[in-house]
């Protein structure tokens, strides 16, 4: 009898302790878009931000990947039912699901990347992709010998058109005679994750005289790097420009630079402020001016991007931040329709 009551006390104490420990824990759930955490680009950046927060802030992190477009909603709901402290939805395809779920769980907090949902418990993280695309477009035009540039888009949606438009404008700024060939991998979310087709399209662009390609294509963009390596075998270098994450390391010496879309820092700072109890609903924009958008320089492309080129790029950057250069924005051209 005594024995069993002791056991009970121990059990209850144990339970209490674990619940106390659990109450302390700050749990963050991340729902990634198609392509997943290994796309080396967009989702990889979000995943990296979450991982860094896990290490630095001591949060508990859970990530899930969507296998089809109908699974966003059940996944967000599953995280919500488990009362995660912050739920981050990565990618434009989740806008509808976030809108619906956030209304059903008004006491929880949500962050949405790349799309806007106006709700009192949602913070929308938007990036000024056209500004960064403008800079890498200028870099591409400076590095190109043929004056022919390539653009590889993932899914043909306004978001990616926005990259393309900025890229073209940046290239024309440096070399008014530059031409840009643009191809898109596809029209469905599968096109974020098709490196084979990304490679084929890149090969045909290189064969048509293009010598620098910029890919905004998620995991499909990895095909471009392989294509650059293949077509550089003859001795004449063909260049690639990475996107979202710093992709300079993928093929050192052939990656001119990467347009950084700091999804990682956006994720990290959102987790950080939510953990401190400073979660703010509304829209947050990341651009050149707050380093949410940038271009990458590291040991892998140190030699490719000459000091002259860097000086020019930094000048352009300053002028954009100061408002002296207006980078054309596909979203404002298409007015309101695209933002959602």
């Amino acid at each position: 009898m005594i024995r069993s009551s002791r056991l009970w006390i121990a059990l209850i104490a144990g339970l209490l302790l674990t619940t106390v420990a659990k109450a302390d824990e700050f749990r963050v759930g991340v729902v990634l878009d198609r392509g997943g955490k290994d796309d080396k680009s967009f989702n990889a950046a979000a995943f990296k931000g979450g991982k860094e927060a896990e290490k630095a802030l001591g949060i508990t992190l859970k990530t899930v990947e969507a296998s089809d477009d109908n699974s966003f909603e059940p996944m967000l709901r599953s995280l919500s039912q488990k009362k995660f402290d912050l739920i981050i939805a990565v990618g434009i395809a989740q806008a509808d699901a976030v809108k619906k779920i956030s209304a059903q769980f008004p006491q929880l907090k949500y962050a949405l990347i790349d799309a806007q949902v106006d709700a009192p418990n949602v913070t929308s993280l938007l990036f000024e992709e056209h500004e960064g695309s403008y800079l890498v477009g200028a870099a591409a035009a400076m590095a190109s010998k043929t004056g022919k540039l390539g653009f590889l888009g993932g899914v043909d949606i306004p978001l990616i058109r926005r990259f393309q438009m900025g890229y073209e404008a940046g290239a024309k700024k440096v070399n008014p005679k530059a031409t840009v060939v643009a191809n898109y991998v596809g029209v469905t979310t599968e096109a974020w994750n098709n490196p084979t087709k990304g490679r084929e399209l890149s090969l045909s662009q290189y064969d048509a005289g293009v010598d620098v390609i910029f890919a905004a294509a998620g995991a499909s963009g990895t095909g471009m790097f392989d294509a650059a390596e293949e077509r550089s075998k003859g001795g004449v270098k063909k260049f690639a420009i990475g996107c979202d994450s710093n992709q300079n390391w993928i093929k050192p010496g052939l990656v001119l630079t990467s347009m950084l879309k700091r999804v990682d820092t956006a994720v990290f700072s959102t987790i950080d402020s939510a953990k401190k109890g400073q979660f703010v609903a509304g829209t947050k924009r990341f651009g050149l001016q707050n380093q949410g958008i940038d271009y990458a320089v590291d040991s892998f492309n140190d030699k490719l991007l000459t000091s002259e080129m860097r000086a020019k790029l930094d000048l352009l950057k300053k002028e954009i931040i100061a408002g002296k250069i207006k980078v054309p924005d596909y979203y404002s051209k298409r007015s309101k329709t695209a933002q959602n």
Binding site: D69, I92, A93, A95, D96, A115, V155, D156, I157, P158, L159, G186, V187, T188, T189, T337, A338, N340
Partner: peptide, 17 residues
């Protein structure tokens, strides 16, 4: 069907196909 959805039948209020 993808083409139909992207071109003539597209929902203009969203970026999703």
């Amino acid at each position: 069907t993808s083409w139909l959805v992207i071109e003539p039948l597209r929902n203009p209020d969203t970026q999703n196909p």
